[in-house]
């Protein structure tokens, strides 16, 4: 069993949705995570806030963002246990961010810290 990060890529929801809609998405996300946890496949979850986000550029210039120029910013990621990348992708399919057109889920196996890959 490997661990996979399921990375949510979507717009800053608060820019396009009402607080009620945000709350509905929050419930759907909690139900999605709860469903994975009920299968004993949940490892951890990390939400990333858009507020105060910064981008540090190669010339060390710091700007606010990433907004505007990128539609698919990272909104957060959860880590799951899965037998294969396909199973992990199956978990990702249930994520409510996919309800928004242009949004994606990225599935990445997490490198083991023991020198193996």
């Amino acid at each position: 069993m490997d661990e996979y990060a399921l990375i949510m890529r979507h717009e800053d929801g608060s820019k396009i949705a009402s607080p009620e809609q945000m709350q509905a998405w929050m419930k759907q996300t909690m139900d999605w995570i709860g469903g994975i946890a009920a299968q004993n496949k949940f490892v951890s979850g990390t939400g990333l806030l858009f507020a105060d986000a910064k981008v540090v550029h190669h010339n060390k210039v710091v700007t606010d963002g990433p907004f505007g120029e990128i539609k698919e910013t990272i909104g957060g990621f959860i880590v799951v246990r899965a037998e294969s990348a396909e199973e992990a992708a199956g978990f990702a399919k249930g994520c409510p961010v996919l309800g928004g057109e242009g949004n994606t889920m990225e599935v990445r196996r997490i490198a083991k810290n023991d020198g193996t890959h």
């Binding site: 419930k27 909690m30 139900d31 995570i33 709860g34 946890a37 009920a38 299968q39 004993n40 949940f42 979850g45």
Partner: peptide
Amino acid sequence: ILQLYNRLLQIEYSPIAA
């Protein structure tokens, strides 16, 4: 109750909670 179980399962899985 559903949301409480969603959070409980993230802290500690058990078949009965699932």
